[in-house]
Amino acid sequence: MRLATIFLVGLLGTLGAAIPSPFIIGGEPAAEGEFPFLVSVQVDVFINTYRHNCGGTILSERHILTAAHCLTAWGPRDIRIVAGSVQAGSGVGDFYRAINFTLHEDYDEINAWINDVAIITLETPIVLKPGLVEIVPLPALGSDPAEGAAAVVAGWGDTQARSDILLRVDINIWAQRNCQDIYYGIGYPVYPGQVCAGIPEGNKGSCQGDSGGPLVVNGIQHGIVSWALGCAEPGYPAVFTRVNYYIDWIQQHMI
């Protein structure tokens, strides 16, 4: 695969991003409590010096849902979770340490990052707070959002050179065949376990550091930010892990 043209939107750095922008593109600040299930997945880059790496969502008091590619360079003890704050990228919020994580056994970064899903297990339970820290609503198996459905994606992006306030942006679900045709044309397959969203004119969507975060439709998480051509490139939607496709795997690994 031609990694020079595609980047994973949650790595520390880019793999040839077409637009080197470090945050949600075309977004606006999220309101406190607007995404109570969203957490910052942070990594220890140097002796208890943590940096935001990816987003994640609260599956239970002990489990976080995120993208597999967010974790491949790290061990469980390198990771902490920050919940309950739109300023989590600055280290404001409730802190929890990871003790383990599970990547999908068939995750393949060489093959369009298929099965890009993972679960982090926490050392201590998250303290849930109504309206501020909550468990994410997930779709039923086979429950797909309609083509054109209004969706929202949120994240902190790379915290190195911008405000650490959580940003959100409104986009739309793309027709699966249309998305498959677009990416097939540049040599990248889009699989049934993936869903695409964006706007045709681009300039709105996710970017590096937003991976692992949620694609939300009607309050339900239908996607996990995974990969794209550049950042909100016109004509190229972002590709998300399709959550309902992995519901059984998620439930089996929340142990």
Rank of each mutant, 00 (worst) to 15 (best):
M1H: 12
T5K: 09
T5I: 12
F7T: 02
F7Q: 02
V9T: 12
G10H: 01
L11H: 02
L11P: 00
L11Y: 01
L12Y: 10
T14G: 11
L15V: 13
G16I: 03
A18K: 11
P20T: 05
S21F: 11
P22M: 07
P22H: 03
P22R: 06
F23I: 03
F23H: 10
P29T: 01
A30M: 01
E32V: 13
E32T: 10
G33C: 07
E34H: 07
E34D: 09
V39M: 06
V41L: 12
V43H: 08
V45L: 10
N48M: 08
N48Q: 09
T49D: 12
Y50H: 13
Y50G: 02
R51I: 15
R51N: 11
R51H: 09
N53P: 00
G56S: 09
I58Q: 12
I58V: 15
L59G: 04
S60P: 08
S60M: 03
S60Y: 15
E61H: 04
I64D: 06
C70Y: 00
L71D: 06
L71G: 10
G75Q: 13
P76C: 04
P76M: 06
R77I: 07
R77T: 15
D78N: 12
I79V: 14
R80G: 10
V82M: 08
G84R: 10
G89H: 14
S90F: 15
S90I: 07
V92D: 11
I99N: 14
N100C: 02
F101Y: 15
T102C: 04
T102E: 07
T102H: 03
T102W: 01
H104C: 02
E105D: 05
Y107C: 04
Y107R: 00
E109I: 04
I114H: 06
I114R: 13
D116E: 05
I119H: 09
I120E: 09
I120V: 13
P130W: 05
G131E: 08
G131V: 12
G131K: 09
V136R: 06
A140Y: 02
L141P: 10
G142E: 09
G142I: 05
G142C: 07
S143Y: 14
S143H: 15
P145F: 02
A146M: 11
A149N: 08
A149L: 04
V153Y: 07
G155K: 08
G155Q: 05
G157M: 04
D158T: 03
A161F: 15
A161E: 12
R162P: 00
S163K: 10
I165M: 02
L166M: 04
L166S: 05
L167V: 03
L167Y: 00
L167E: 09
D170M: 02
I182G: 00
G187E: 06
G187A: 03
Y191R: 00
G193H: 05
C196A: 10
C196M: 07
A197S: 10
G198N: 13
I199A: 13
E201T: 15
G202Q: 01
G202F: 08
N203W: 02
S206N: 05
S206P: 00
D210R: 01
L215H: 01
V216M: 12
I220T: 15
Q221A: 11
G223N: 07
S226K: 01
W227V: 05
G230L: 05
G230R: 08
G230S: 05
E233V: 15
Y236L: 07
P237M: 05
A238Y: 09
T241A: 07
R242Y: 13
Y245T: 15
W249Y: 14
W249C: 04
Q252M: 14
I255Q: 13
